[in-house]
Design a protein around this nucleic acid. Structure first.
Lengths: 196, 196
DNA sequence: ATAAAAACATACTAATTAGTATGTTTTTTA
DNA sequence: TAAAAAACATACTAATTAGTATGTTTTTAT
């Protein structure tokens, strides 16, 4: 049971790229099997339905890869404000997988699927909850370490930061240029400085 | 030429509601004509293609209604920071057209269409540009009026606020509850207070 | 090596999609 | 009021959709 795992992963990764670029409903299974060079029989051997594949993408592709690049940067640095800034800066300006014109894959999935598929909502909720949780505890630690004002509400700040990130990714899609990111990052820095 | 205008508007408004709820690509023309009680012949008399209708929705439904509720509140109040807070508060908590579970219609359209249809991108860009412009000038006026610190970058703040709004609307879709909006609004108020 | 299960391949189906062809009815204009 | 144009109605089409039925090949365990 090794090659089968490879084809499964191949489907998930290629399908993720297609969906990230064109949206879930627009990406047809025929299109997926055409680009993966996998036959329909193989596809439906691995996934009972398209939605089962969609869920697998969230759980087996998005979660591992994103949580790695979302959580780790928050955990290794001591100063949470710098950690948050660097994290967002990395996501917007340096990350090679994420593209301006396609926005944030998690936000895309949420927008397209959240109201219509409870399983998707739940999986996406788990993902964002983890991100929120680690960011909040990072800020709380920063309060104890003297990096952040004691009266700062960590949960609120977390929500504010994540909202801004999702939003600027969406705004970036319209202009299709990273220059808008720079303005956003400047203001993010100003905002974070007020929390010191 | 009066009744014809009525059917056209009827199509646009009902189609907007369907698309706002289910997304552009998922909302089929058959579904639209079923709920509008308009025949296919009538539909295609008014719109050459589905995309032409989509553009008309942005220009003839979204622009007039939204710009009215987005621009006006910013113009009548003197204190720009209060104006911005009240605007966002109204959009999130009081607006009857906008629903938590469906997010922001402009953001939805952007996310689904922006990378794939240049005409859509342009129309949406115009809409957001107008919102950005009026918010920026409001803040600039507030600087002169002594409501806002002189060193505040109005464009950056505008971008930051709009991003946050789009983002929190998207986050709201996952939880499908307005309680998350309250936390966001609290932090928005804190942030705006730092600009005094 | 062989039987059994896992993995994949091919050819289909029924429903849905955007859009068209060809009408009829209603308004408008002269 | 009659001709012409505008507005709408009905019945289709060709392509695409997710999913299935029925195979064959490849692995794995014995």
């Amino acid at each position: 049971m090794k090659k089968a795992e490879a084809t499964r992963l191949n489907i998930l990764q290629k399908a993720f790229e297609l969906i990230y670029g064109s949206g879930y409903k627009t990406t047809s299974i025929d299109h997926i099997i055409a680009t993966t060079q996998v036959t329909k029989g193989a596809f439906y051997y691995h996934f009972k339905t398209k939605d089962e594949m969609g869920l697998a993408i969230i759980n087996e592709v998005l979660k591992p890869t994103l949580l790695n690049s979302l959580l780790e940067p928050l955990q290794k640095e001591q100063n949470p404000l710098e950690a948050i800034y660097n994290l967002i800066d990395n996501l917007l300006m340096k990350n090679k997988v994420l593209k301006v014109e396609y926005g944030c894959p998690v936000a895309n999935f949420t927008q397209e699927m959240a109201p219509w598929n409870a399983d998707f909502s739940e999986a996406l909720d788990e993902l964002t909850k983890q991100w929120k949780k680690i960011m909040t505890t990072t800020i709380e630690k920063g309060k104890e370490g003297g990096f952040v004002r004691k009266d700062v509400n960590a949960k609120q700040v977390t929500l504010f930061v994540i909202s801004g990130y999702w939003g600027i990714r969406n705004l970036g899609k319209i202009e299709n240029s990273k220059t808008i990111y720079l303005s956003y990052l400047k203001e993010l820095k100003s905002y974070l400085n007020t929390l010191k």
